[in-house]
Structure formats: structure tokens, C-alpha cells
Amino acid sequence: MATTGKLHFSLVSPERALYSGEVDQVVVPGVDGQFGVLSQHAPFMTVIQQGAIRILDGASERKIYVGGGFADVTPQGLTILAEDAVDLAKLDAAGLEKDLQNAREDVRDAKDADVKAAAERKLARLEAIRAAA
């Protein structure tokens, strides 16, 4: 049981585990609104939407973008199953702008419907990342 007052938080994506450790609080963008999880939170499960997870530990704050997934709160801690996760601290703003530019051009230049839909999805994802950062 969490007696330390710290919350065990792990973030896993289909490909690998991205984060695991003890933190003070995690703020998660749930479908029914943002919620913060502290240690000894009641068991709770929800769908999360596109947005940034904020990990608060002491004075530090870390933001990680997730493209949707699930949050599972148990007495052992919080687990987030994310479909797509990007660490916003490691994000390079200039690179993102360039990717956005490219994605917009891809949408404009797309010839058939499938390619266009794929390019639009890519663009939407990049825009969401920028909005979260």
C-alpha cells in the first residue's frame, strides 16, 4: 500500500513501457474532464482523450502527450495505457513546425481519398501535440 504518500505511476504504450516511477500527482485528460490522481485514490477506470498528461513531482512538472487510451487507478497506483505518446520535454519546436508544414502540404497535394485521409490524420495528430505543448 502506498504509505509513502507517493503515487506509483506507469505509462505504457503498445510497443514499450515509457515511464515508471513514484510521483506526487498526475493530471490526466479524461473523456469526462481532467482529473488529478494522488496516492490512495479510489479504484477507478476511465477512457482518456487526446491531450497532455502532467506529472507533478516536488517542484518539477513533466508533460507527456497522449493520443487517447485508458487510465486505470488501483490501490497499487496509476497505469495509463496510451496509444500514442510523445514526451513534450524532448520535443523540438522547430522540428514540429517543419513537420506541420510538411503535413499541410501532404494534405493539399494528396491525390486519392485514402492518401488524403492518412495525411489529415497525421496533421491532426501534430496539431494536437502542438496544442498540448
Binding site: 479524461g30 469526462d32 479504484p43 477507478f44 477506470m45 488501483t74
Partner: peptide, 22 residues
Amino acid sequence: TSDTGGGVYTYEPGEEAILEAL
């Protein structure tokens, strides 16, 4: 299966909706 420690799980929006997405 995750151990709820005797507590009752709360599902948001609902069990079916989560299962549907999961």
C-alpha cells in the same frame, strides 16, 4: 487481474463504453 484491495471500481463513462473502446 488487478487487485482492487476490496474497493469498488468506478467506471467512467460506463463498463460497456469502456469495454467497447478497449
